[in-house]
Each structure stands twice: as structure tokens, then as C-alpha cells.
Design a protein around this nucleic acid. Sequence first.
DNA 1: CTGAAAGCGCTTACAG
DNA 2: CTGAAAGCGCTTACAG
Lengths: 348, 348
Amino acid sequence: MASISEVARLAGVSVATASRVVSAADYPVSAATRERVLQAARTLDYVPNALARGLQKSRMPLVGVIVHDITDPYFAEIVRGVEDAAAPGGYLVISCSSDRNAERESSYARMLRTMRAAAVIFAGSGIEDPDLNAELARQVAGIRDNGSAVVHLSPHAGGPPEVGIDNAAAMATMVRALVGLGHRQIAFLNGPTTLYVARERLAGYRRGLAQAGIEADERLIVHTGFDRPAGSEAIDTLLATGASFSGLCCANDLLALGAIHRLSERGIEVPGELSVAGFDDISIAGMTAPSLSTVRMPLRELGRRGFEHAIRVLATEEPAPELLMTEVILRESTAAPRYASTAGRNQT
Amino acid sequence: MASISEVARLAGVSVATASRVVSAADYPVSAATRERVLQAARTLDYVPNALARGLQKSRMPLVGVIVHDITDPYFAEIVRGVEDAAAPGGYLVISCSSDRNAERESSYARMLRTMRAAAVIFAGSGIEDPDLNAELARQVAGIRDNGSAVVHLSPHAGGPPEVGIDNAAAMATMVRALVGLGHRQIAFLNGPTTLYVARERLAGYRRGLAQAGIEADERLIVHTGFDRPAGSEAIDTLLATGASFSGLCCANDLLALGAIHRLSERGIEVPGELSVAGFDDISIAGMTAPSLSTVRMPLRELGRRGFEHAIRVLATEEPAPELLMTEVILRESTAAPRYASTAGRNQT
DNA sequence: CTGAAAGCGCTTACAG
DNA sequence: CTGAAAGCGCTTACAG
């Protein structure tokens, strides 16, 4: 691999000058010299060594995105948004799947720190775990210390996200949408209680009911995981309570999809007998049968804006937190209750 | 950020010694000295600078995975496999979505080269495009020149993958499985003809028919894209031909899912009136309604093995190419044809 | 077992 | 507009 000194030699200039033409776009260099250097770089297939430059700056054009699982479409979409925003500026995006394990999050944060990544974006919700969060906080402090940017897209131990949405308000709106359809007995499949985002969505569920003047029935709230199997299992749990309900709000789409699958296995019609709503609007939400009513999170934009936020932090701009818009999308999985609004499906 | 020299000073040793204890695990250092250095590193929260080390080695523990789109579950799964294999060794994984644009592939390859990524894995099929492939070949040569590893998981302009599957054989097996169910008229939704993998799968379709003694009907072959909308559109194209068929093989799962969706919109029952099969076994294939019959590609393992292959290349081991096993999985989207095996659904 | 020193490939004051 | 030189933070022969 040709180095800048070889380019300089071939062009008959100093490495300082060569460096200026290949890197410092605006530094004054005579047109003739510039041309000679560029020509030399071309003939040698010169590719600058980003490590040498990064060593100077103590920062690499690398942005780590810490996700729960890149295989979860929610996160894939966010990562794609980050990529789209990052690529034009020459930044590369590192995917870090933590499986919601705080230890792995810290470990990834440390590796990112080691490589002096310019930015670290926490895409998933924070996990409640005092010990490990302390370790994570140390890594985050170290990253910031280095002048790198840290951005959260979801609530976490340290507080609200720098770029995010209002989870509680959005969930409350969805609950009210179901009420608007005529539902009064609405169950809730919550995500892991150790996840800050799940708490917010649960709070939103309660708030939505309260706003509609409906008292929450604790039997209708099931705490589970955040993936499809968890949604299936939760249905069994919910039905076992014997409580009646005609609507079901889920803390995310994957839960809703799992729930619908299990409901179909148990011969319960959606939305005929039960209306089901998700949250996130992952890409497959519109493609399932029935298609899923959900809260649209601007996932790709979230990734994009998260990166842009980081860039502003790197420019020491101290950008203000941003709240992105969400939208309730009613598709095929929700409908007016079949019976009178006070009747639940278990009410026989 | 504390540097190794600060650690050395605090421990009262030379930087050479400090470096040896924090990095060269096996280099002989007296126990007492080692302990003092470790202690110093701890109190200073020393995090080694991977850039300085990478500059030495001219290689960073970074592996770039060039995918068509990280949002496509096929690729997300592969990237996850790479992550799983890479993390234990301290490698970080870079996601590069090219959108099947050869220019963006080259651009990513160049950036990866700039950062001296230790490995570059091409997860998606190569794209036929002489000009751009020449540019891509230059970048790949540059990467190899640097001592980094390049691994393909799918066929490409340069030939077969280092780690992959036998696409043609697998598709032929699926065709024969449909024939085994009683189908004789089997249509094929092919991916983009510019993708080498699509060609192999098409060849497999033809081979499967030939093996079953069935002559291919060219009207039953539709060339389209590789995503869901392409599958939907292709159904319209196919039905417009008026040709009759009772089975449909698709070059990938997304196509099959799009096809099923459109079929349902047009009131054609799957598998009642038409059996549909995909290829890849992406994670949602088993969760759709009807669940999708497909060829299971060991996606995650492919990613894992791809990384391990790269590691062996880095150790100058010249590993042999690997062929991973596939498996035909018959789920709900395929069944015996409703009418006599010679009857197609358009035969009224 | 330990250390002094060169060098990896750049960038950037500083001087001219 | 151009160049000599220091320095970013490590690793690694080389010498002892």
C-alpha cells in the first residue's frame, strides 16, 4: 500500500504538501502542485490510512449502534437510518447486538471506546440494573471524555433520550383509538419491566384508560418479553385469568404478532372477536394477515436524526433534545367490538 | 484518556514493559511488575488505543459485511452470525448496505480499506456489471494486498463463494419436492437477472424440472426483483399470461411472501389453489399465515462460518471453500394440487 | 526479565 | 504557497 510519503516523493513535494492536497480540501496549494499530487496519488492507487489520521485526532469516523438484536426489524430499521445518514460523511456503522444484556452493552461500549469511535448510539431502551449501569456509565463517561458523542434513542437510566418519541403519549393515543372504536375492556401486553421504554408504554396505557374514564383492571396487564414467542405465551396467561376484554394493546409489534398467531391457533378471530394493536410499525406490520394496527415510529428517521444529533455534538453545538412524531395507524387487526361495547369475548 | 506511558510512569516501569503486560499476554514479565502495571492501568481506567496498535499492524479488528440491505431479514441474520463469531475475539462488525448498487459496494470497500479492516465479507450475491466490477476488483485486490481477508458468501463475478451453499442443487430439490406432491406445472419467480445467485437458482429450477422429466414452460418464468413488492407484481404478470400452473417456486422468501399476499388479494387460495414455495427460510417464514414452505439456508451459521473463514485466511491458512447444508422445509403454503396433477388453476 | 529507541502513516503548528 | 519536524500511542526488534 502506497503511503503519503511515496505519493509526495513521486510528486516531488513534501509530505506536508501532499497531505494538504489529499486531505485538507481548503488549504491553499498551487493548482499545478495540487494536480501533480493528485496524479501521483492516482497512479499509486493511494488510499489514505484512516488509522494514522485517527491517531492524530484521537477519533475515528466510526459510529457504533448498540441494539438489542440486529435481527429484530425494529433495530435493523434504525441501523439503516444511521447508515444512510453516516455514509455520505464517510462514517462507517458498527452493529452491536447486546441481546438486552447490560454486560454485553458495556463490553461493546468499551470496544468502541478502544477504537475511538466518534459516536455511540444506544438504539434500544436502557435496562434497569444498578451494578451494570454503573459500569456502563463509566464507559459512557470515557467515550464522552474522548470528545466522542453519545446519543440515546430511547429512555435509559440516565434519563430521557436525546432523540426519541413520547412513548407514553403515543400509547395513550392508541388506547383512546380503541376506545373510540367502542372498546372498554382493553388488555395490555407489556414488555420486560426492566426496560425503561416498557414502563413508559405501560404508563401510557394507564393514562389512555384514565383519559377515557376507564378504570384499569390489573388482571388485564401481563408482563412478558419483547419478542414474538413472548406474545404467544402472554395470550395463554391472559386467557387463563378468565377476565373479559375485547381489545388488546401490545407494547410492541412483535408481541402483537405473537399474540395474533396464538389467538389464531386457539381459534379466536382477530379482529372479529378481539382487536389487537401493536407499537413500532416495523416493516412487516403492514404485510401480515391481518395487517397490524400500530403506532408508527419513524424508525429510519430516528436513526438518521440520531446520527445527525451526534454530528452536532461533535461540533460542540449542544443540540437540544428532539421529539419525533408518531402516528396511530389503524389497519385490519382492529375493529369495533362485535357485541355491545361492554361485552368481552369471555363473557358467555 | 490515560495512555500507556502514563500507566508506565505510575507503575514505575518502561512503556515497553507496560505494553507487554497489557497486550502481549504471553511475554515473560515478573509477577510483581505485572501486578503493578495492572494496578496502575486500573486506577487510571486505561483503555488501550486500538488505532495506535492498528497503525503498527496495519490492520484493525474490524470486519465489514457488505449486504444488500440490513433491513432485509436475510442479511440481518447473516450479520448477526458474523457478530456472534466476531465479538469473542474483540472484532467489531460494520454493516454496509449497498442496495445492490455496485458503486456503493465499491465505495464501502474503499472505506473499509481506508480503515484497514481485517476482513471484508460480501454477504450478498455479486452484481453483473463489468465496469463497476472492475472497480470493485481493484478495491478487493487492495484489501487483500494489505493482508486483510475477503470472503464471499454468495456467487459473484470472481466465481463461487468461499463459504456458501449449492443454490442450484437446493432449488432443484425444492422443485422435485413439489413434483413429489403431485405438481407438474410449476412456475418460477426469479430474482434480478443481474444477480449471480438468481441465475443459479433459476438453473436449479430448470434442473429440477429436467430431473422430473418435465419440460420447462418459458411463460411460467418471470424475472423480477428480490423483495416483497416484486413478488406481488410478478403474480400479476404471471396470471396475465394465461398459462396454467399449480405450483410456484420463488427465488427467495420475500418474493414468495409478496406473491402470497397478492394471491390472497386476488382471491386465490394458497395452498388450496396454488402451492407456493420460497427460498432462504428467513425468520418470519415460519410465522406467516400460511407459514411458508422454503429451503432453509443456515443464515446465521453462514455468517459465523464466513467470519471464521476470514480468521483462517488472516492466519494464512488457505482454508478450503465450504459448502453448507440446506434443507427443504414443507410448511403450510404447499400441498398436493386440488385437482388431478395435470390441471392448473387457470384451467377452467 | 527489562528498557531505549525506532517506526507505523499521518497532521499541524511553526518558520520561511 | 511550501517544507522540516514533532508528535499522536502504541509495538517490537535489539541490547543488556
